[in-house]
Each structure stands twice: as C-alpha cells, then as structure tokens.
C-alpha cells in the first residue's frame, strides 16, 4: 500500500521528521504513538501534502506512485484520506454539496463521468444508514456549529463516502468523550476490510481499545524508535513514554 523510506521533513528550517521508515500492506492497521512534539501530526500532514513542510529527504511510494510528487488533491484522488484532528468549517456549504463535488472531482481524475444527482443521493443515503448518521447532518453547513464528536463522526462518514484505500487518522480521539469515542471507532471498524489500510495516530492508548491495531510504532524525535503489536500500546499506557525516551538517549 504505502512504503515510507527514510522520510525527513522540516518546517521553517527546524527538522521534525528525521528518517521515518514504515511499510503498510493492504488491510493492515498501524498505530503511531508518541509523546507530544514527536512529529506525529507532521507525519500525517506531510503524507497528505500540506505545503507548510519542506521535504528534506527520503521517499514515499503509494500504490506504485511517488506520493511526494503528487499534489494534495491528486493524493486524495488516488485514495489517500486524512481524517483531520481539527476538521475545518465551511459555512454555507452542505455536506451533500461538498461530498458531491469531491466524488465528482475524483471521478473526473479517473476519467469517469460525474455521478447523476439521483444516483449520488441514493448512494449517500445508503452510506448514511450504514454509518448510522443523523439525517440533519448532511444538510447542515459543513462542520459549522458541530460538536467535537459530530465533527469526527462526519470525518469518518466522509471516509465511508470517498472509499479511500489508505486512511490516516490524526488524533481522532482528541477532544472526544467516551461515548463519542465509541461511536467514531465503531464507524472506523465498519470500514476495515482486507484491502483498506489504516494509519492511526494517537497520543493515548484508549482509542486502540476500540480500533485494535496490527502494529504499534512509537515515534520520538522524528524517528520510529520502537515497534510491536497491540500489546506495546498497553505497555505504554502503564509505563508512559519516559522509559522509551531513556532507551533512546542511552543508545545515543
């Protein structure tokens, strides 16, 4: 699916990612954990193509293509989806209109005709049922006046609509109470399948109780310093990050 080799990135001259290596195969769920400032959100931003960062080295192959060469919109059209930590509000634009535009832009990129309005609405309705979305959500302006939980659920709903191949989830659990966390996770789990991969970025282990990962990686100072299975997350929950920091410092 995606193969990241020695990826390095900086912002305003400050180096944030210092050589990330990560391989994700179809259907796998990888979790990235780490203390604040480790570079977790930078990694998601760089993969999605946010222009604030400068790529200083390494390469990323996504479905056989050089990801870093693609524009952010083309990365999305190729099947990369980022669930934002802070979804943006767009007043006056309904979810329906937004998603219709997104889907048709993607279809255009792949040489397909735009979806008929009635087909689109049918498709949307079925996805809403599947994801147990409230009907009002789609006619409301995108994310405007949404609660934290509604915004995150809407991200997952967009994911369901756009049917991406790789989903990056950037601290989706931040700001969610336990009920919202459960709902959002249930949505994500519905979307798991043999082809679709996930990169779940989180500070806390509790999200991983609901979205159980195949692999857990610890990011520290812009490098993956430890990898393991889901039990590594549990260990971190008990012991915190300090022991990892010490291990790393000792190795230097």
């Amino acid at each position: 699916m995606i193969s990241i080799t020695n990826l390095q990135a900086s912002i305003e001259g400050k180096s944030i990612l210092n050589g990330i290596n990560l391989d994700i195969k179809p259907g796998e769920v990888h979790a990235i954990m780490g203390p604040n400032g480790a570079g977790k959100s930078t990694l998601s931003s760089v993969l999605a193509g946010r222009s604030d960062y400068e790529i200083t080295g390494g390469k990323v192959e996504f479905l056989g293509k050089d990801l870093l060469e693609l524009s952010p919109e083309d990365r999305a059209r190729e099947g990369l989806f980022l669930a934002f930590q802070y979804p943006v509000e767009i007043p006056g634009v309904s979810s329906t209109n937004f998603l219709k535009t997104a889907i048709n832009e993607k279809r255009k990129y792949h040489g397909l005709e735009p979806m008929e309005a009635t087909d689109f609405l049918k498709f949307m309705r079925s996805k809403m049922e599947e994801m147990e979305m409230d009907k009002s959500l789609t006619s409301r302006s995108l994310n405007e006046g949404f609660s934290g939980g509604e915004k995150k659920r809407n991200e997952v709903f967009q994911m369901a609509m756009l049917e991406p191949k790789l989903c990056i989830m950037d601290e989706t659990d931040s700001g969610l109470d336990i009920d919202a966390l459960r709902l959002v996770s249930a949505g994500v789990n519905k979307l798991r399948n043999k082809e679709r991969s996930f990169l779940v970025i989180t500070h806390y282990q509790r999200l991983l109780d609901y979205i159980v990962p195949d692999y857990v990686h610890v990011l520290y100072k812009g490098r993956i310093v430890k990898s393991g299975d889901a039990s590594l997350a549990k260990e971190l929950e008990v012991k915190g990050y300090d022991w990892i920091k010490q291990e790393v410092e000792a190795a230097v």
Binding site: G49, P72, E73, F84, A102, I103, L162
Partner: peptide, 13 residues
C-alpha cells in the same frame, strides 16, 4: 489555507 487544504485533501482542487 486550512479550508483550501481541507478541500484538497478531499480531492477538490
């Protein structure tokens, strides 16, 4: 830029 990037990430140029 955040709105523009959000749209871009959904495939909207």
């Amino acid at each position: 830029e955040d709105q523009i990037f959000y749209c871009a990430q959904r495939g909207i140029g």
